[in-house]
């Protein structure tokens, strides 16, 4: 028995699904962000496993492009997290809450 591309993809799918569930069903904005980070992790796993297993790469394509892609995902995730947390603090100052259930002044 060996571990194939399909296995990694399945794991990434499950982690992505958990991320989605967390992002969609947690009340606290910071918890939502945690869900997003899980989703991004799943994406990284997918990229790396394709990098490792895929044979679709042509002669000009470097398989490690997937790794480069992941580097950028990490960068963007960090930047996004920083801005998100600043925003959460801003909202907290205005409302004394970061519960998304209660941040619904703008609606309909």
């Amino acid at each position: 028995m060996s571990v194939e591309l399909g296995h990694y993809l399945a794991v990434s799918g499950i982690v992505f699904g958990i991320g989605v569930a967390v992002a969609l069903s947690k009340r606290n904005a910071i918890a939502v962000l945690m869900g997003v980070e899980l989703m991004l992790n799943a994406v990284n796993l997918t990229l790396l496993s394709f990098s490792r297993f895929s044979t679709a790469f042509g002669p000009d394509d470097e398989p490690l492009t997937g790794h480069v892609f992941v580097v950028f995902v990490l960068t963007v995730a960090a930047a996004e997290a920083a801005v998100a947390l600043a925003m959460a603090v801003l909202v907290y100052r205005r409302r004394e809450t970061v519960d998304l259930d209660r941040i619904n002044l703008l609606r309909w």
Binding site: A10, G13, I14, F16, G17, A21, K26, D99, L100
Partner: peptide, 27 residues
């Protein structure tokens, strides 16, 4: 002063369903 209980929002059902569905699709 924000809640620390990691409580679920109103959208826990669609959230879990969407998560399950996506995991199933990718799987």
């Amino acid at each position: 002063l924000a809640s620390r209980d990691n409580a679920n929002s109103l959208y826990v059902v669609p959230g879990v369903l969407a998560g399950l569905a996506l995991a199933a699709i990718v799987g």
